[in-house]
């Protein structure tokens, strides 16, 4: 206050160029990787394949298959930014799909069915948040437990088998949500299923939430240093409840997508899906120790996995090879990230 008031510009000595380079990689790295994968497969497909990889029809398939992963991964992004993890997301999403299928079969009206599905997701998330926040058990353990609980609930609801729904009972929009066919409307608007647009809308909302809202700041603060957040009077328990509930809502949405893809609900189908969601976040630059993660990164992460799956199909590469590739990419992404952090600290 007694000082001459001017902010002195002071560049960190030495590593500024390197630091800046990493910073660019930080924000665009995942997108760059996505572009690389797309270009790589396009070229490979034109040489060895049938040149169908880059066709609009295939792009539509990739997008439709990526949308549910992306939506749930966006919820996971928020949870991971706040320093948490949700291993129950996979089984919770099929629990939601099962609720959807059962209530449709039981003849409830469509708004009621959707509300019940979304509420189920939110309730799953709230349960996680409550256990983590109030019992102070690490999120990894809590959600490991609820993962099996949700699986069991879904099985009970489905009476141990798959739930089939009469086609006539499924509303048209739900059938078209994840349709790979071009929609009826044409013209200047890109020809993609409505579900993809919905997912993009959700992404924009989450991005705004993370960047421009008080809640968003609190998420970063808690994930970055929970004691600081507490010191600053942040209601840590409340924020955790909220973020898990929000993530639950998005998981329910992912459940709706996957139901609309296959039109049946198989309770065991969700096992292992959560790892895909987490992988999307991690490939996208999210840090499992909290405080870091971006919407753009997560979308790119989800898309990378979608593109690899589809590209391998087109090139008739075995499913097992795809798994190995995705595994390598996850490890590479995290290695790069660690390296980046270390060189920033220096």
């Amino acid at each position: 206050m007694n000082e001459p008031s001017n902010v002195v510009v002071e560049l960190p000595s030495g590593h500024s160029v390197r630091t800046r380079l990493w910073r660019i990689l930080d924000s665009f790295g995942p997108l760059l990787a996505l572009a690389l994968v797309v270009v790589g497969f396009t070229i490979a497909d034109n040489i060895w394949g049938q040149g169908r990889f880059a066709e609009m029809r295939n792009v539509r398939v990739i997008l439709v298959l990526t949308a549910p992963v992306a939506v749930a991964a966006l919820g996971m992004t928020m949870v991971i930014i706040a320093g948490g993890i949700d291993l129950s997301a996979g089984t919770a999403s099929t629990l939601c799909a099962t609720v959807l299928a059962c209530s449709l079969s039981a003849g409830y009206s469509v708004p009621v069915v959707i509300a019940m599905t979304l509420l189920t997701g939110a309730a799953c998330g709230l349960t996680n948040g409550l256990l983590i926040g109030s019992l102070r058990i690490p999120p990894f353990i809590v959600t490991l437990g609820t993962m099996t609980i949700f699986l069991g609930l879904a099985k009970q609801l489905a009476k141990g088998s798959t739930v089939f729904v009469d086609r006539k009972l499924i509303p048209n929009w739900l059938l078209n949500l994840s349709s790979t066919m071009p929609p009826d409307w044409h013209g200047w608007f890109p020809n993609i299923a409505i579900g993809v647009w919905l997912a993009l809308g959700v992404a924009v909302l989450v991005a705004v939430l993370l960047r421009c809202t008080v809640l968003g700041r609190y998420l970063f603060a808690i994930g970055s240093n929970e004691s600081t957040a507490r010191l600053c009077g942040v209601n840590v328990l409340g924020v955790k409840l909220l973020v898990y509930a929000l993530a639950g809502l998005l998981v329910a949405l992912a459940g709706i997508y996957s139901f609309s893809l296959v039109k049946i609900a198989n309770p065991t189908e969700g096992i292992g899906k959560e790892l895909k969601f987490i992988a999307a976040v991690v490939i996208g630059g999210g840090s499992l120790s909290g405080g870091r993660g971006t919407v753009l990164g997560t979308l790119a992460g989800a898309a990378i996995m979608g593109v690899i799956a589809s590209g391998c199909d087109q090139l008739e590469i075995q499913n097992s090879t795809q798994d190995i590739m995705i595994g390598i990419i996850i490890i590479a992404a995290v290695t790069l990230d660690q390296y980046r952090q270390r060189s920033m600290q220096r």
């Binding site: 970063f220 603060a221 240093n225 004691s227 600081t228 957040a229 009077g233 405080g291």
Partner: peptide, 20 residues
């Protein structure tokens, strides 16, 4: 380091966190 400030957040985040 461990409590007062969230070291990997920005100056702006740290400065305004207690009252947004």
């Amino acid at each position: 380091k461990t409590e007062g400030l969230a070291q990997n957040l920005s100056i702006a985040d740290n400065l305004t966190l207690s009252d947004l």
